[in-house]
Simulated scan of single mutants.
Amino acid sequence: MKLIASDLDETLLSTDRTVSEKNREAIRRARARGNKFVCATGRGYESIQGTLEEIGMKDAANEYTISFNGGAITENAGNRLIHFEGLPFEQAETIFQRGLKYDVCIHVYTLDTVWIYRIFDGERQYLDGRMAFREFDAENLDFLKEEPLVKVLYVHTNRDYLNRIEAELADITGDLDVSYSSNRYLEFNKKGVNKGNALKFLGDYLGIPHENQIAVGDNFNDLSMIEAAGLGIGVQNTVQSMKGKCDVILKSTNDEDAIAELIDRFVLS
């Protein structure tokens, strides 16, 4: 049995935000042979139910999802939470307050809602069809003080600008897990919360050894699981600066049935 952990946006999902027929069929064949296919996303598990339905895994017992960059692991049946690690309120509030000083849109994730401050038209368009959200205009997070907070992220389409912000936040990021995704997000999770550690947890939970774990992604929030897996794979459209850190780069992009290529070459061959 192999455990295949796949990122969603820009990896499993085509640009039109659907799962291609070839990818769906390859996942079906891999599961029919007893392998585990796990969606591993920076988004919340509530927002990917449409994708799980496309691949025949919505509400499926003994099937699992890694979400919030590893902040949560759920069994698909009933979205049963089996592992959760969130941000303490004080850390989330500090990240939010520092973000107010920059030209960024800010997302704040609870388990069931994405709250967005200063959204702009381009971000609305990007999120359309990906996930629901609620806007807010308060200049603090006091209204979420009693909620379980999962992560905070900054949005800007200039990666160099996000890199500069990360450097300027060095005084607080030592106690955080920081990653990038979708070439527009600078993400902050609790220290130690990442897709790699979530993959290790799930592998132990399922009794699937490291050497039988495969991880695939396209951006730096996927790197921890790509490095943690026995085989770490990048799709062809993986960001250039990360390609050298992958064991294998697929020939296909997310718009060319990359997951089907992975399954045919490394799972079913």
Rank of each mutant, 00 (worst) to 15 (best):
I4K: 06
A5W: 08
S6M: 05
D7F: 11
D7H: 12
L8A: 11
D9L: 06
S14K: 15
D16V: 13
V19N: 05
E21P: 13
E25G: 02
A26R: 11
R28C: 01
R29W: 01
R29D: 01
A32R: 00
N35F: 00
N35K: 12
F37Q: 11
V38S: 13
A40I: 10
A40H: 02
G42V: 06
G44T: 01
I48S: 00
G50H: 10
T51E: 08
E54H: 02
M57F: 01
E63A: 12
Y64W: 14
I66V: 14
F68Q: 01
A72P: 02
I73C: 13
T74G: 04
I82C: 14
H83W: 08
F84L: 15
F84K: 13
E85V: 15
L87D: 02
L87G: 10
L87H: 02
P88H: 14
F89P: 00
F89C: 03
E90L: 05
A92Q: 05
Q97F: 13
K101W: 00
L111S: 07
W115K: 02
I116Q: 01
R118K: 12
I119G: 03
R124F: 07
Q125W: 02
Y126L: 03
Y126K: 10
Y126R: 05
G129A: 10
R130W: 12
F133S: 04
A138P: 00
N140F: 10
L141S: 02
D142P: 07
D142K: 05
E146S: 07
E147F: 04
L149C: 06
Y154L: 14
N163H: 14
A167L: 15
A167S: 14
E168N: 10
A170G: 13
I172C: 00
L176Y: 02
S179P: 01
S182G: 05
S182Q: 12
N183T: 12
N183S: 15
Y185D: 04
L186S: 01
L186F: 11
E187A: 10
E187T: 06
N189I: 09
K190V: 01
K191L: 15
G192V: 00
N194Y: 10
K195F: 07
G196N: 04
N197H: 14
L199P: 05
Y205V: 05
L206T: 09
P209F: 11
N212P: 00
A215S: 05
A215N: 09
A215P: 07
D222M: 07
D222V: 04
L223V: 00
S224Q: 14
M225R: 06
I226Q: 08
G232I: 05
I233Q: 09
G234E: 04
V235I: 00
S241N: 15
G244N: 14
G244W: 04
G244F: 08
K245R: 13
D247W: 03
I249R: 08
L250S: 03
S252K: 12
A258W: 02
A258T: 03
I259S: 03
I259E: 06
E261G: 08
L262R: 03
D264F: 07
F266E: 01
V267A: 13
L268Q: 11
